[in-house]
């Protein structure tokens, strides 16, 4: 997420909002933002309802056996359609901003179907 913070201007230039979602409380996310200097949007899903709705629940994946999110990224367009998905197979192999910026620029070149 540090890499996304560093490239935030490029996402802003493409009218794109970055949103981090986890089971962490707002308080925990605020601490994270303060310590790491993150300025993009963070949302809390303590009961993992949205995480479940997106099919990215990692049951008992937390340190104390709580349900958490597995790492996953979705690119959603203005109409609410998923345009690009990244589901990693290893928690060590994370999405790089380049990958999603390239995907977005590729999508922009395509004619929009309405």
């Amino acid at each position: 997420m540090r890499s996304f913070e560093r490239r935030l201007a490029e996402f802003r230039a493409r009218d794109t909002e970055i949103v981090g979602i986890s089971v962490d409380s707002g308080e925990e996310s605020r601490k994270l933002c303060q310590s790491q200097g993150y300025t993009f949007t963070f949302l809390s899903d303590p009961r993992a309802e949205t995480i479940r709705a997106y099919g990215v629940l990692h049951e008992h994946g937390g340190e104390r056996g709580q349900d958490i999110a597995r790492p996953a990224e979705f690119l959603v367009d203005r109409e609410g359609t998923v345009r690009w998905v990244n589901l990693t197979e290893s928690i060590l192999a994370r999405l790089r901003p380049d990958m999603i910026l390239r995907a977005m620029d590729g999508l922009d070149a395509e004619p929009r179907s309405r």
């Binding site: 794109t16 981090g20 979602i21 986890s22 990224e73 959603v76 999603i100």
Partner: peptide
């Protein structure tokens, strides 16, 4: 676009 980043 909105990029949703689900993290642990």
């Amino acid at each position: 676009f909105v990029v949703l980043i689900f993290y642990r």
